[in-house]
Amino acid sequence: MCLSIPAKIISIDGSMAEVSAGGAIFNAGLHMIEDAKVGDYILLHAGFAIQMISEKEAEETLRLFEEINNSLDE
């Protein structure tokens, strides 16, 4: 029930946005996040954007995975 999905903001109208998740379009309230822009990824939960997704942190996590991989290959 705490399921939240990554969704991309495609348009913003005041405190509401249209977001796209896997090609499906949803409405998302932006009441809980600041400085969201079209193109940003948010976590969509029960009709609200509950958090911005950090691309930098996601890349860092993937880089860590890569390190684990490499350490195994050695």
Binding site: H31, M32, I33, E34, L43, I50, Q51, I53, S54, E55, E57, A58, E60, T61
Partner: peptide, 18 residues
Amino acid sequence: IQYNRAVTLCGNLIAQRC
């Protein structure tokens, strides 16, 4: 925190205030 792309130490302060 493993889920760094969405989670921080302090979380979403606007949501918490609300």
